[in-house]
Amino acid sequence: MHSTHRRALLAGAGFAIIGRGLGSAQAQGRTVIRVGWPTGDGAQDPYAIGARAFKEEAEKLSNNRIEVQLFPNRALGDERPMLDGLRLGTVDMAVITNAVIAQIEPAFQINDMPFLFTDEAAAQRALDGEMGASLAQRLERRGVVSLGYMEGGFRQMVNNVRPIARPADVRGVKFRVLQSPIYVGMYTALGGTAVPMAWGETFTAVQQGTIDGLEIPLAVIDANRYDEVTKYLSLTNHIYSMIGLLMGKRNLDRLPADLRDVVRAAATAATAKQRTASITNARQITEGLRGKGMQVNAVTDPAEFRQAVLPMYESFRGAIGAEIVQQALAASR
């Protein structure tokens, strides 16, 4: 539908329109908040689970004074344009990958540091404590309010050479990585070979033996059928994927005080629900991949891996901030 036509219909239905956005608009006692995210709306998609949970909580807690409209599959734009829209007030709310948030607030790089968190509980402890509060303060100064630190699941290693149980097992193995200094640095520190490669080329490269494996979250391994081209799944938990439930400060501040409180309370409740669902899905997917023939192993001594990559923490300390690094390390012990 043409955007002008859509706005006319919404306005006619009693929803006020402010500027280019529809959200945070008050009309007939109702407020519309539009939430966008980059992935699909599947039952096990972590972004979709979080957005749906927020809609349910916000509408319930506000007695339907708030209507939350959901826009999956980049319908409000790719992640960086959505993030910029939050700052400008043209996008109301979004669920966005940590690495993209780090593009406007470098302190968020802490969440992508390897082997920082041993499990979900450690990550949640840090994000719900001093570290998370410090990150939120820095982000708010950029015009974006962090309403909840949701969970994309840990990234794991899959390959065709050997199970990865200790740092020495990574040596000589060629892993596809994101084009990121953190990911390249991690494999370099462990003695492996990092091969930056576009996602669209990766499956064929593994299939043909150009690379030995890659590192991705469990849901992505399953959805993209990497069990068909890789043998070993090692639950390394090397990077915790945080996804942020974010709202533009401009649009949050436009709300009446009682609805601001509702939005924050709904986000807190939705984050708790989303995290629980993410952990449940991870267990189910792991067992499903095992059932499809993958050889699955857990890492018994994550401290050994962290020790191997500790020099990276020093090299990123300046960009992230010494205080944030210290808070993260303290919470993850």
Rank of each mutant, 00 (worst) to 15 (best):
R260H: 04
Q26D: 13
G213A: 05
R275L: 08
M242P: 00
G129L: 08
M1I: 05
A11T: 07
S315N: 06
G213D: 09
A43I: 14
R52N: 10
M82P: 08
M242L: 07
L218A: 12
P106F: 11
M197L: 12
N111K: 00
D169V: 03
R162W: 01
W199Y: 14
D84C: 00
V220Y: 11
A53M: 05
L88E: 14
I104C: 08
Q137M: 09
F203V: 06
A48P: 09
G185P: 07
M131C: 12
W199M: 13
S3Q: 12
I221K: 00
G209A: 07
E140C: 04
Q124L: 10
V173Y: 08
I49V: 15
S332L: 06
Y226G: 02
M131K: 03
R125W: 03
H2T: 06
G148F: 03
Q44Y: 13
I18V: 14
L218M: 12
A303R: 14
A189T: 04
T31V: 15
A308M: 05
I221D: 06
P38V: 13
E130C: 01
K60N: 08
G23E: 07
K249P: 00
Y226D: 02
V220M: 09
A123S: 15
V158D: 06
W199E: 14
T230C: 14
A308L: 02
R254C: 03
A13P: 00
V184L: 07
F115A: 05
G36N: 06
T236V: 05
K60L: 12
A48H: 12
G152T: 10
V263A: 03
A267F: 09
L246N: 05
L255P: 02
L88K: 13
G77V: 04
A25L: 07
L329V: 07
G14I: 01
A257I: 12
R333F: 11
D261Y: 00
A122S: 15
S62G: 07
F115Q: 06
R283N: 12
A269P: 01
E59A: 03
G293A: 06
V184T: 11
G200Q: 13
A53K: 09
V229N: 03
Q284F: 00
L252Y: 14
M150R: 13
R74S: 14
S332D: 01
I221G: 01
V206Y: 00
R171P: 00
V95W: 02
D45Y: 09
V100C: 10
R80F: 14
K231F: 01
R34W: 08
V262P: 05
Q207Y: 04
D128C: 01
L245P: 00
R264P: 02
P256Y: 07
A107C: 10
P311T: 05
A107N: 03
A107E: 05
P114L: 04
R30T: 15
V158K: 07
I104P: 02
I96R: 09
E140N: 14
K60V: 04
A8E: 13
T280C: 00
G291T: 02
A48V: 08
G153M: 05
P106M: 07
F154A: 11
P181D: 14
A298V: 11
F305P: 01
L233E: 09
